[in-house]
Design a protein around this nucleic acid. Structure first.
Length: 210
DNA sequence: AAGAGGATGAACT
DNA sequence: GTTCATCCTCTTG
């Protein structure tokens, strides 16, 4: 069943990032339904998180979506090519979001294959934040879509797929640059032994932070 | 008005 | 391991 708005408006974005594992992301683009089990997430939390676009509560046209009441999508273009999908969480005025980094394909696998221009059902179909959005035809046009509304072309369901807390691997987020302490925060969560998650943990040996 | 750079992925060597 | 595709957003002048 559809996940209600109250799931998203909770204040702890780290908890929501973990709770989203096992939930099912659904897109119905052009009458074609695709869906996937969320198997990897990352939390982003303004104002103190330098990795967050809304670091120090910086409001711009782009970040405005993140400040809204939880339960909507935040989709933006990365490197000019990839559309990255986030779930906005928390109260109105709090810029918190969960990046979905990978899903396990459920419905519409053949459509996903053609969109990704590959011929087999293999992890590279959806095991990255820019990959599953392509497979599910999610673009920045879907920014601010209501995910708690079953009529929305993108929404999230609870299909009673349980992920025990000891099945969740935790580690630093992917793609952090020179952002000091924020890069070390273990705010990436993924399902242990699930082959549909993205690249392995990044190990940082450098300990010279500002 | 212009320029830098990015929460990535694919195709290279 | 390296390069680069590609474009929007934000900063600076």
């Amino acid at each position: 069943m559809i996940i209600s708005r109250s799931f998203y408006t909770r204040s702890d974005v780290l908890q929501i990032a973990k709770d989203l594992l096992g939930k099912v992301l659904v897109s119905s683009i052009g009458g074609i339904t695709t869906s996937g089990i969320i198997v990897e997430t990352e939390a982003y939390r303004a104002p103190d998180d330098r990795a967050c676009h809304a670091y120090q509560n910086k409001r711009t046209e782009r970040t405005e979506t993140m400040f809204k009441l939880g339960g909507i999508a935040y989709v933006y273009i990365c490197y000019g090519i990839h559309h990255l999908f986030n779930v906005v969480t928390g109260e109105d005025g709090m810029a918190h979001a969960v990046l979905i980094r990978a899903v396990e394909p459920l419905e519409g696998k053949s459509v996903m294959k053609s969109r990704r221009k590959i011929t087999q059902i293999i992890p590279s179909l959806t095991n990255g934040p820019g990959k599953f959005t392509e497979a599910m035809s999610i673009t920045k046009d879907h920014n601010a879509v209501e995910l708690f509304n079953a009529q929305s072309i993108i929404h999230i369901r609870d299909m009673s797929i349980s992920v025990d807390h000891n099945e969740i691997l935790t580690g630093p987020r992917v793609g952090m640059g020179n952002i000091g302490e924020s890069a070390l925060r273990p705010w990436r969560f993924r399902v242990k032994n699930n082959k549909w998650t993205s690249k392995p943990d990044i190990v940082k040996y450098e300990a010279n932070y500002e």
